[in-house]
Write a protein that binds this DNA or RNA. Structure first.
Lengths: 349, 349
DNA sequence: CGGGGCGCCGAGAGCGCTCTCTCCCGCTCT
DNA sequence: AGAGCGGGAGAGAGCGCTCTCGGCGCCCCG
């Protein structure tokens, strides 16, 4: 039980160093216009006293918090069924840490939570927000908007209606999907089917669009609805097999779906990849590497997405003080950044 | 671009309601000793002005932050290779939210990060900390200790040397392991092997201990070292099969390991569960349900662990103001809480 | 009918910091 | 040698809130 020593204040440091509070403040922060000798004395005093600035007092006057909120809707199964979100968090955390910002995590579920988040954001407790909004009708974006906090979105918001002040980072779902389907086509497959994700999510919509892009080039495509779960993949695969017993390629909207499809294919006696080639999406390691055979899939650099989101936000914050509101927008801040994907070939193609 | 309206202050609300700052403050907080009529007037003014208290100003005087840090070592592969951590976070978040506390996430990797975390914690920016420390030689616990912040640990700390002021929440790794092995024994299996986790983690140590508890009762046990990865599981399984070709039961330290073992068993022509029965640990859904056949495993309620950690910490905080330091300890605060596990039987046994 | 108590409310003093404003000192320029 | 200038340091005013304290009115009891 160490004594609850009252933490030393600026005042204490000043006294010990024999200078004024103002001087200590100058040294502790940027330290400009303080003679080396004095600065050194101050630094020593800080060291000896173990002084740490009181962030609350500082925020009170500067109106900055050096803190950023990360807002995510918790019921999103994908957020908790795979390491996706954790990786994104890691990227965000790294970038924020590098700029001495704190990460305040806000997980929501349900209406009342939205109100809470809105209040928190509007309360000016953080300098900006990173918001994950995957659904087309997500109330979060609007809420954040009206809270007037600089924001960067993770994933293309559903209502990206050409407004120029929405900043987001997404991976190239459409391009990745095209690559996947072209890969199948390049293997000589001609009857290629797609199992979609839930179409109220932009990522699923974009992957479907990518599939269509190529299928339109190369003939009609077979499509069955899925929901990003293995169960959904199984159902869709059965349906597809019934409709077109001789299909020879499947592009699944994500790896979980592909895993389900794979099971049905085996159950129905199809050999993979000989009879049917399969491509997934995400390269969600614990799944993609564990399927039998290991899954060919489209990888996105999730951690980099997180890092980029944070970087964009912080950049907007630096300048943004003027505009202050709505978004980390600016002449040279791109409104949407789309990260490339890469095809990872394993054994299902 | 909404105008950056200066947020209304207590003063503004007071003026509008025709009362003093003190009265508004009373209403905004607990509201005791204010007549209903006045309180109502104040509430209306708050509403109309959209007043939100300035947390910085409040913290400055109360020395409370209503914020808790969650500290986790990021290189922990398990944290980012599975949804484990995310689920724990969810539990924590729910509990904190219910008590109007914020969650500040601190991810560390490497030495310099430790220093940073130490400084942050010592800086008194948060009221307490939830620390995940899985390794025996983790520097984090000591660091947190010396920062003098009330703390609850996730997972039994390696140095739980009987000190009574370390509060932690863990799941019953040892008991769960015993259940798993007894289950195998109950199925008539007599040559049961164990693939361990990395033995610098208490969870792996405890699971091994559980295995030994039962094997000591029922005869000697075959043990091979693993590392919580599928690759490690494969290696260990091969070794075990070489040493004891007629083994008929395997208890793997976690599901990933079991998945690897399963693959080797199939490759070596063993039927599961007919020839060899397999039990995992964790019930990590995307893995346990996707193995072939689906894995019998030991489930822990991870979200509940998180929630409990938060609850314990908050409870300690309420009272703890006096002691202030070291830990959320108190006469009726248990030092270690161990959550029960349950065996989930699927198709590998 | 008077005094004491109690419940409500306002005044005011800070919490620890930043930042502007002013002062002072040393130097150059005329 | 005196005036002017500029850079370095200190004084002091808050930032928005909480909380103690004192005053005032009301009720109750003697």
């Amino acid at each position: 039980m160490t004594e609850t020593a009252p933490r030393p204040t600026l005042e204490a440091v000043a006294e010990r160093a024999g200078v004024s509070r103002a001087t200590v403040s100058r040294v502790v922060n940027g330290a400009h216009g303080v003679r080396d000798a004095l600065a050194e004395r101050v630094r020593r005093a800080v060291e000896e006293l173990g002084y740490v600035p009181n962030q609350a007092a500082r925020s009170l006057v500067t109106r900055r918090h050096d803190a950023v909120a990360v807002v995510a809707a918790e019921p999103e199964t994908r957020i908790f069924a795979d390491p996706y979100f954790a990786q994104q968090l890691r990227g965000i955390s790294k970038e924020l840490t590098a700029h001495d910002n704190q990460l305040v995590l806000l997980l929501t579920e349900g209406r009342e939570d939205h109100a809470r988040v809105g209040r928190y954001l509007a309360g000016g407790h953080v300098d900006g927000a990173l918001v994950f909004s995957l659904h087309l009708d997500d109330p979060l974006p609007g809420l954040v908007r009206s809270a007037g906090v600089p924001t960067v979105f993770g994933g293309r918001p559903g209502w990206d209606d050409g407004r120029d002040d929405v900043v987001y980072v997404d991976s190239d779902n459409r391009g990745g999907a095209r690559d996947a389907v072209r890969h199948l086509a390049g293997l000589g497959r001609t009857r290629i089917a797609h199992i979609t994700g839930p179409l109220d999510q932009t990522s699923a919509v974009d992957r479907l669009a990518g599939f269509r892009d190529v299928r339109t080039e190369a003939g009609s495509g077979l499509i069955a609805p899925g929901d990003f779960t293995p169960g959904g993949g199984e159902r869709a695969m059965r349906e597809l097999l019934d409709r077109c017993p001789d299909l020879d390629g499947v592009f699944a909207a994500n790896d979980l779906t592909a895993a389900g499809a794979l099971r049905v294919l085996r159950e129905r006696g199809r050999r993979v990849p000989e009879d049917v080639a399969v491509v997934g999406f995400d390269d969600m390691l614990p799944v993609a590497e564990q399927t039998d055979p290991p899954l060919t899939t489209v990888r996105q650099d999730i951690e980099e997405m997180g890092r980029l989101m944070a970087r964009l936000l912080l950049r907007g914050l630096d300048r943004g003080a003027g505009a202050g509101n709505a978004a980390a927008t600016g002449p040279d801040t791109p409104s949407g950044v789309v990260l490339p994907t890469t095809l990872v070939r394993r054994a299902t193609t």
